[in-house]
Computed example of a mutant assay.
Amino acid sequence: MINVKNILIIVICILILCGGVYGIKYFMDVKQYKEAIKEIKIADVDLSKIKDGNYPGEFETSFIGAEVNVKVEKHKIVDIELVKHKNERGKKAEIIPEEVVQAQSLQVDTVSGATNSSKVILKAIENALKSADKIKQ
């Protein structure tokens, strides 16, 4: 007959095994996330090729994501709505759309302390503008 001590040892071993598997998966996800962030390159988009309209864009990594709607009128960005921003500590980066509108360029400084969120938001805006550029004019 199995006693309580043996059952407790088995349960503890199962918990340790599950924790180890979860820990390994988490560290692999973090590594993949860091590599994805490092590889983000923000290209400038030629606004003279963009027709008037509203263009959705998004970009997502393991831990951070952004969804935007970019409004273009007369080859100028007039508004960027940040529809969704999945972030950890990157709330400060939510000023990026306003800075892009002011600069009329994606080449704006990232927000200190929210660099990763800044890059993800900029990439979502770039994706919106690139999708607009592909629409037949």
Rank of each mutant, 00 (worst) to 15 (best):
A132M: 08
K136A: 12
E39F: 07
S112G: 06
K86N: 10
G19C: 00
Y33H: 14
A128C: 09
E98N: 13
A93W: 06
V11G: 01
I10H: 07
E35H: 12
K31C: 04
I24Q: 13
G57T: 04
I50D: 02
K5Q: 06
N3S: 09
V70M: 05
R89S: 15
D29S: 10
L106G: 01
I10S: 08
K49L: 12
T115N: 09
K123W: 06
Y33K: 06
Y55R: 05
D52N: 15
I42H: 10
F63P: 00
K134M: 14
V78M: 09
V45R: 10
G113L: 07
I121C: 07
L122D: 03
G20Y: 07
L129W: 07
K49E: 15
C18I: 14
D46P: 02
I95P: 02
H75T: 02
V72F: 12
K31I: 02
I16E: 06
D29P: 00
N87K: 07
G90R: 01
S118C: 07
G23S: 08
D46M: 10
K86D: 09
I80H: 00
K130G: 00
V120Y: 02
K74L: 05
G57Q: 00
S112V: 14
Y26E: 09
V68R: 04
S62P: 00
I135R: 11
I37W: 11
A114R: 05
D109Y: 09
E99C: 02
